[in-house]
Structure formats: C-alpha cells, structure tokens
C-alpha cells in the first residue's frame, strides 16, 4: 500500500515548521510517523504537504524544571520507557510509554505525535490527562500552554490549530509515596486498549488524600472518571471503598461498539479495570 502523492519539506526549526504549515491548506506535521503513515497508506489521510520535524533533535529531551518534568515533543517512546528521571518522578508516564505498540514502534513513535494525533484509544494521552499535564504549543502568534483537560476535543481532534506545533509536555512531579497504576486491557500485545485505566493515589493515615483516575477508549477523548474521583475523596483506603467507587467508572462516558467489544462490554470492563487500578496503585 502506497500513500497518495504529497510534497515534502524538512523543517530546520519549529518556526520554519509553523511557516511551512501555513503554505498549504492541508499540510501535516511528520515526526515518527507511526500514526500518520499508517493512515496515509490506507489513504484515510491525504495531506498535500508533509512538514518533517523528525530531526529537530532539540525537541528530544527529558529534563527537570522545579516541580515539573518537561519532555520534548520528539522524545521517543522507547527512550521515555527507560528514562531514569521519568521513572523517578513520574513512573506512570514512563510505564505507559512502554505499553505503546511494540519495540520497533516505540523506537520511532514520539510523545508529541501520540498527543497531537488525539486518538481516544491511545494510552499516553490518558496518562497525561490523569497527571494534569500541560502542553506547550508554538503557533504563528507565539507560544501558549494548554492544560491536558482542554486539549483533547474529539476523536482525532485537539486544540491544535492548522499551523500549531506541539513542542513539549510538562508533567507535575508526583510526591514520593504516590501510588499509580495503568491497566491496559487488550487481546494481543500490540493492540490498542479496548479499555485502559490510569490511576494516581495519595494516602494519608489509611485514607485517600487525592485520587486521579483516567479512562482510555471510553469516549471520543481520554476522560477523567470524575464520579470515581468524587466517591474516593477522603474515602478509606480499603477494598470495599475502592470497589464501591469503581462502580462510578462509566459515569459521563460514551464508549463505542466496534469489532473488539460492544459499548456494554466496555462499560462493565471500565468498572473492573478501575478497581484493579486502584488496588494496584494503593499496593505500590
């Protein structure tokens, strides 16, 4: 399968990429290409121009900045999955990056590409939403930051404008002792999540001080399980309380039915995976 013909430009800087994106109505950015090229081979995407930013190596980094970890948009999944700084301060994200695709895919796929693609079945966006990440975007009128909770707008739709380039992801460091889990349910190792659940919990004297729970593939965007989160506020860190809170998982979700599972199946699965995620997070 060969993609439809397109023009190709390699950008030497983010500013040049922004400018090139403005020159064609349906130009697309190309980084690792592991979301875009499969769509182009199937001709579900037919951009007229690809602006290649794959080699902007100054966007390939992980660094500490006070209370946050900043990750360049071109950091590869394979590097993030083994990054010691990320494991120390944000193990949920490091773990999730290792759950994407397979080793060959992770060698190419970038965190920025995964986020900008806006696939509700993708794992890293859910992790970022759960972690209250902030996304850094450069466009024609300069740089802006967008909280993850307002970044994802619909299936493959994000807050990014046609000339915007996502340049970095900022994730708050987790306090030491914070529990975390990502439950990815799929049939084959390389598949997308049928449902995925991210959980981050902080304890205080046998009670939950803070709980953040995110859902993958339970709607048109990654979602926060706000019903679960409110049920957990101040709750006892005990199996019954966790199981009761997990029953709220489907609130506010709109899962689809597809070849992998029906909407009803996903609804039930979300409760079970939320319970497992909370149990694992508390055990850590």
């Amino acid at each position: 399968m060969i993609p439809a013909a397109f023009e190709y430009e390699r950008a030497e800087s983010v500013d040049q990429a922004v400018q090139l994106l403005g020159e064609h109505e349906d130009a697309k950015l190309l980084a690792g290409g592991h979301s875009l090229l499969p769509l182009m081979r199937l001709r579900l995407a037919r951009p007229s121009l690809l602006v290649d930013i794959d080699r902007l190596s100054d966007l390939e980094y992980v660094r500490e900045a006070g209370d946050t970890i900043e990750i360049g948009a071109l950091a590869r999944m394979s590097d993030l999955a083994t990054d010691q700084t990320l494991w120390k301060h944000c193990p949920l994200l490091a773990h999730v990056c290792g759950e994407v695709g397979d080793p060959q895919v992770r060698h190419r796929a970038t965190i920025g590409g995964s986020v900008a693609h806006g696939d509700p079945a993708s794992d890293p966006p859910t992790a970022l939403l759960t972690l209250d990440a902030v996304l850094v975007v450069r466009g024609p009128s300069g740089e802006r930051t967008v909280p993850a909770k307002s970044f994802f707008t619909s299936v493959f739709e994000t807050d990014l404008g046609p000339q915007d380039v996502l340049t970095a992801v900022r994730v708050p460091k987790l306090a030491s002792g914070t529990g975390w889990s990502y439950q990815k349910f799929h049939r084959r190792a390389i598949d997308w999540a049928i449902v995925g659940v991210a959980a981050v919990v902080e304890r205080d004297d046998g009670h939950l001080k803070r709980a953040a729970v995110g859902l993958t593939n339970m709607g048109s965007t990654p979602l926060r399980a706000s019903g679960v989160e409110s049920a957990l506020a101040g709750a006892e860190a005990a199996p019954q309380a966790l199981a009761a809170a997990a029953e709220h998982a489907p609130e506010g979700t709109a899962p689809v039915s597809d070849t992998n599972a029906s909407a009803e199946y996903r609804t039930e699965l979300s409760k079970i995976l939320v319970r497992r995620a909370l149990e694992e997070a508390l055990a850590r």
Binding site: R41, Q104, R108
Partner: peptide
C-alpha cells in the same frame, strides 16, 4: 542500530 518497521518510514526520512 535500532529496530524499525521499514514499511512505516519514508525513504526520505
């Protein structure tokens, strides 16, 4: 040195 699926990369890349 890293494994890559060559069906998912452009020759220009």
């Amino acid at each position: 040195g890293r494994s890559v699926k060559s069906c998912t990369m452009l020759a220009v890349q």
